[in-house]
Amino acid sequence: MGENESNEFNSPGYDIPDELQAQVAVTTLDRIYNWGRRSSVWPMLFGLACCAIEMVCTAASRFDLARFGMEIMRPSPRQTDLMIVSGTVTKKMVPQIVRLYNQMPEPKYVLAMGACASGGGPFKEGYTVVSGVDQFIPVDVYVPGCPPTPQALLHGLIAVQKKVDTESLRQVRWYRKQASEPIPIPLLGPDLIDPRNPPRPQASQPAPVAEQA
């Protein structure tokens, strides 16, 4: 390993002899575990709307993602680490998004790209738009913009990398004793039904059709 890598890992507190600098690195288990994961985050090829085009442009040759180890964009959730929710989350699509999130193996991260995925965006008032994907799945990084420029998305991806750097093997959720629960899939009825918060029939609930003035 070259000089740079050994500096990234080493906090030895003692000197490594010069002749061994190229062969020995002293580091902590957390650091090397995180280094391996953050340098090869594989995003899911999951583009919903306009932000997907900026994601494709970020992966293209001008704003290369490959230099971060992220050029493997697989459409199958079983082979990905990072779900970039790029685009407006509609009620019809939410069951599939939750299903895909459940199918991703741990360790998994979610990046909400754009205003629509973060909080509904310009379409927030719409009747089939969900105000942000974080109403259903946990989000790690939010990237604002409509659409975020490729530079902004790269900044967000570097933020994911930094978040991965702060994790510790003793505390990550996928090595806990109890298995993590999959998120229940929402249902499409008269409107979107979240099984964690189902609608209660209320007599006092105002009727959705407004009175004629």
């Binding site: 719409g126 008269p190 039904i193």
Partner: peptide
């Protein structure tokens, strides 16, 4: 909004 989310249901709807 009654449900604090972007949803509305018919008055007699029960899950």
């Amino acid at each position: 909004v009654p449900y604090h989310h972007n949803v509305q249901f018919p008055p007699d709807f029960s899950i």
